[in-house]
Simulated scan of single mutants.
Amino acid sequence: MYFKYLLPFIILFSITANSQIVEEKKNFRAADSLLKEHSFSVHRDNYFLTGVPLNEPITRNSADVKYQISFKQRLTGKPWVGGFFPYLMYTQKAFWDIYASSKPFSEINFNPGVAIVRPFYLKGGRLTYATISFEHESNGRDSIYSRTWNMLAFSLKSQISPRWTVGIRGWIPFVDNEDNPGLTKYVGYGEASATYQIKPGRWSADVLFRKGSGLINYGSLQTQVNWKPYKNENYYITLQWFVGYTESLIDYQEHKSMLRLGFTIKPENMGIF
Rank of each mutant, 00 (worst) to 15 (best):
Q68N: 10
P104S: 00
N139S: 04
K256W: 14
Q73Y: 13
I11V: 15
K72E: 05
L122K: 05
S161G: 03
I172S: 02
H38V: 01
L221Q: 09
N180W: 06
Y145K: 13
P200W: 09
D206A: 04
N46M: 14
P112K: 10
M151E: 10
T91L: 04
Y189K: 12
P181W: 01
L75F: 07
A63S: 09
K78H: 14
R163L: 08
D97P: 00
W96A: 00
S41G: 11
F9E: 00
V243D: 06
G188A: 10
G271W: 15
Y189P: 01
R210E: 05
E178F: 04
R29Q: 13
G125H: 15
Y245Q: 06
Y87F: 11
K103H: 14
I69T: 05
A130S: 12
R74C: 01
T165H: 02
L54W: 15
P200N: 05
S101P: 01
Y218M: 11
R60H: 01
R202N: 07
A17L: 07
G83T: 04
K157P: 09
P8E: 02
P57Q: 12
K93F: 11
G201R: 15
E254Y: 15
V114S: 02
V166Y: 06
S33K: 13
F174M: 10
F28R: 14
T128N: 07
W227H: 10
I272P: 00
V114W: 01
R74L: 02
F209T: 09
N180V: 12
D142N: 09
A17I: 07
E135F: 08
I168M: 13
F110T: 01
N55T: 13
E23G: 01
N18Q: 11
H255Y: 15
Y90I: 05
R141H: 03
R44I: 05
Q222S: 06
R118M: 02
P57W: 14
K4C: 04
T165W: 10
L75P: 04
